[in-house]
Design a protein around this nucleic acid. Sequence first.
DNA 1: TCTCAATTTAGAATTATTCTAATTCCACCT
DNA 2: AGGTGGAATTAGAATAATTCTAAATTGAGA
Lengths: 138, 138
Amino acid sequence: MTSGKKHQGGDGRALTPQRQAVLQVVNESVDHLTAGEIYEAARRVLPTISFATVYNSLKYLTEAGLVGEISFGKGSSRYDRETARHDHAVCTRCDKLVDFDLEETPQLVRAAARRSRFKPVSIHLTLMGICPDCQAKV
Amino acid sequence: MTSGKKHQGGDGRALTPQRQAVLQVVNESVDHLTAGEIYEAARRVLPTISFATVYNSLKYLTEAGLVGEISFGKGSSRYDRETARHDHAVCTRCDKLVDFDLEETPQLVRAAARRSRFKPVSIHLTLMGICPDCQAKV
DNA sequence: TCTCAATTTAGAATTATTCTAATTCCACCT
DNA sequence: AGGTGGAATTAGAATAATTCTAAATTGAGA
């Protein structure tokens, strides 16, 4: 062992109770919650947690790769327990946000990089459309 | 003629001087300006224009299909003189935003619609990466 | 036990955007 | 020419999301 390390992550106190509470909230939801919704839910687990800590924790967890952040279009950012690369579909009627996965993204990244001359890091693909539920209604 | 119409657009006063000023600012910029930047530039053309009018005008112009609105990720919305469907590349180092166009998007829309079961309306594709300038530096 | 840096907290501050109410504008009617 | 009414504009207040600040707390290691 390189003996200089203090904690599992290398620095800081890593997974504090507050960060665990936030992580738990994100992991237990199928939906993609906003920071506000996460705050409300986290308070039920840890009533003294503050809004700033929820933001700090989300930032920490996002950087640590434990949660995914989605900030498409308007409104507040949403947080996702799914951290692997994936795509999103947003309903233009009810704003529902759904995950899906397109297998052809590697080729897509290459094509996009060629056209833009950027060195690719990642690609974000969002389909705007009408969700099955809203299609059913009328 | 159906005689009920009052103006060219069908209602309202359509392209007022303020809306023209905002449109001109967007059209004359190669970059993708924020509402704040558009406000600053529009004031040089029309010094009495207010911030609210810039927002109202941008909303009007966007709905009329005369400017494009981009609101990817963090920060404020940006406005684009290019209104046809196209893709964006964002530099993760300097935040530069560049337009490009991928020809394979129709297939992409179909594939995404199939996977998500949404009725497709449009697709937004953003490549995150390092722009040529930032690649050159270092 | 003491110390120190990281973290948490509460609330203020900031940023982007929307809303409100009063005023102005202008096409149409008389 | 003058009047009318709906739409647009204005200035500033209000709102929403997020970040910042400063003080208090925490806990690992000396």
